[in-house]
């Protein structure tokens, strides 16, 4: 049946809203917060560890570099203060090895002891044998 000028309408109906979603959202949010806190509690130290590892790796490289540099300098010093190098420059510096007769020894008793020189050795007679 068709009634002219009449259009059916349900405007008079009051909307039946489901308000339970708010509770669900709240629970989900609370859950997310709890999970985040728990995760943060677990992740934070690990992140710190990771950061420390990275820093250690960086510092290890620096240490390696500095150790290499230290070793290079050490070698350079060894070369410069090497006994043969020093001996070679003695002449230039006007230095000569000290003979034992010119050295005085400080004894445990606190005395100064000078080596007593002997008279110069007499020249050797050259024998004519192969063993002596």
């Amino acid at each position: 049946m068709k009634i002219g000028g009449y259009r059916p309408s349900n405007n008079w109906l009051r909307r039946q809203l489901d308000t339970r979603w708010r509770r669900w959202v709240s629970w989900c949010f609370a859950g997310a917060v709890v999970v985040s806190v728990v995760m943060a509690a677990f992740v934070a130290p690990r992140q710190a560890t990771l950061r420390m590892r990275y820093e250690i790796a960086q510092l290890t490289r620096v240490v390696d570099h500095l150790e290499g540099e230290q070793r290079r300098l050490l070698l350079e010093r060894e070369v410069l203060t090497s006994p043969p190098v020093l001996a070679a420059s003695l002449g230039t510096l006007g230095l000569v090895p000290v003979s034992p007769g010119r050295v005085m020894h400080l004894t445990r008793d606190g005395d100064l002891l000078r080596p007593k020189a002997k008279p110069a050795p007499t020249p050797q007679v050259k024998p004519a044998r192969r063993t002596r």
Binding site: M104, H105, T107, D111, L112, L113, R114, P115, K116, K118
Partner: peptide
């Protein structure tokens, strides 16, 4: 090596 002399005279 600082070996003490055996025939030394006191300075």
């Amino acid at each position: 090596l600082g070996v003490e002399p055996t025939n030394g005279e006191r300075a």
